[in-house]
Every structure is written in C-alpha cells, then in structure tokens.
Amino acid sequence: MARSERLAPWLFLAPALLLLLVWRYFPIVWGLRESFYTNALSFSGGREFVGLDNFRWLLDDPTFWKSLEVTMIFNVIVNPLQTILAFFLALFINRSIRGIGAFRTILLLPIAISINISALAWGLALNAEYGLVNGMLEAVGLERQLFLRSVDQAMPTMIGIVSWIGVPLWALFFLAGLQNIPADVIEAARLDGATRFQTLYQIVLPLMRRVLAFVLVSTTVANLTLFAPPYLLTRGGPQESTNLLLYEAWQRGFVYSDLGASAAMTMVLLAITVVVVVIEFAFLRPAD
C-alpha cells in the first residue's frame, strides 16, 4: 500500500513528463550539439565535428547579418508597439458604456484567426496592383502605394499586419489584469483628487506589472520566431528587407540543404530569445 502510494504521483506524471522531455527538451540539447557538426541533423552521409565552424561561417555571411539586423529592427519596433497599443485598447474597452460587450466581441475576433490567414487577407487587401486599400486611397484622391513590394514600406506593412492579431490578443491579457483591480482602489484615488493620468500612472500601472511582464515576454517570443508572414507574403524581399531570421534559417535548411548553417542560425535565435526574455523579466520584476 505504502509503496503504491509513493508510486502513484509518478504514474500520473510519467506520460506528460516523457513527452515534454522527448519533444521539448531533447530537441534543444540536440540542436545545440548538432550545430557543432557538418551535415548537421541528418543521418545520411558522413558527418564531422567542426566545433564552432558553423558559427564562424555565419560571421562572414552577409545574408545572415542582414537577416539578423532586420529581425532586431522588427522586434525593437513591434514588441513595444504591440504592448502599448494593446494596453490602451484594453483600457478603452474596459469601460462600462452601453454596447461595450458587442464591441469587445468584435475587437477580439482576430484572436481566433491564424496568422497565415491574416497575412493572406491583408496581403490581398494591400496588393500593390489590385488591392482594396489602394482602391480606397485612390477613391479619396491619394496616391497608390507599393506596400509589400517596396523596400521602404514592406517592413512597416508587415508590422501592421502582424499587429492586427497581436494587439487584440495581448489586449485580452491586459483586460483580464484590469478587471482584477478592485474598483474601490481607483475610486479612492479619484476621491483623493488624483487626475485620470495620475491614477493610471501611479495606481493602475504598478498593479499591472506582472501582466505587463507576461505580455512583453510573450510578444517577444512570438515575434522573434515569426515565419509565416515572410514565407507567404514577401519571400524575405524586396532586397531582403523582410528576411526574418527564422525564415532565413528555414530557407538555408530546407531549400539550400545547408543544415549546419540552419542549425547555427536557430541556435543564435534561441540564445537571443533567452537573453532578451531574461532581461525583460529582470527589468519588470516587482520591486518587493
């Protein structure tokens, strides 16, 4: 009896832990190991330990550097942008005015849709030759734009497209956080003569710190590892202006069959993700 009691939790845990070890932890360790070999991650043909060579080749690879630059610029803009817009959207739909329920339902709809469908739909709407948006621009007397076909506009356009899902998604978490703040806390502050801005800055924001940390980390993780938008919309172009690193890694591995470079790039991306997430957590840790 006692022995089976001791065994019971492990029997309950075993399947889930085994799956997490095999499908989540093993690939990380193995991917890291394989990035030190030629012909990484494949079983056919000879393979050779090359130490850091895969990474050293990356250093001399202008496409990699350009892709890293594009990925960093994209993230430095898109993560704060989505976080801030989501926070204000949540504040905006957290009020109790008539019909707000219906608006909340509509504004949160994009959450259910996949990033691919959003990318395709907006890709069609923003099509340089035919698109709906260009039609509307012309109708009000403005000039047509190239959007995803232009070196200058492709990245801002892509930021807009991914934010169409991102902003409502993260707003949902902020909304949950806002609704957890007791109403009398806000009321007390207002009664003491605090302005709307003071209440927001000195009462609401500190209480939302945990949610803010969660949202910022989640946007970072999601946007550092975007694949579908460049794959479906731009193929990384024009002139590599939207060549995000995960897309480049996929292209290296699965189109050009250079699995060593591909593994090294994903490991660089993994290292960046971990470092950024740790910094964000440290920065936003509650003061207590």
Partner: peptide, 22 residues
C-alpha cells in the same frame, strides 16, 4: 521544468524535432 517549456517557442527547435520525427 514544465513552465520553462513555455519560454522556448517550439518554432526554434523545429529542425531537430523534424529529425526526431524522421
């Protein structure tokens, strides 16, 4: 260990995972 898996998106380990599948 369980919660940490939420911090590493599976997209980043997709290539070793693919080799595992194969």
């Amino acid at each position: 260990l369980v919660l940490l898996t939420l911090m590493v998106p599976s997209e980043l380990t997709v290539i070793p995972s693919y080799t595992l599948v194969s």
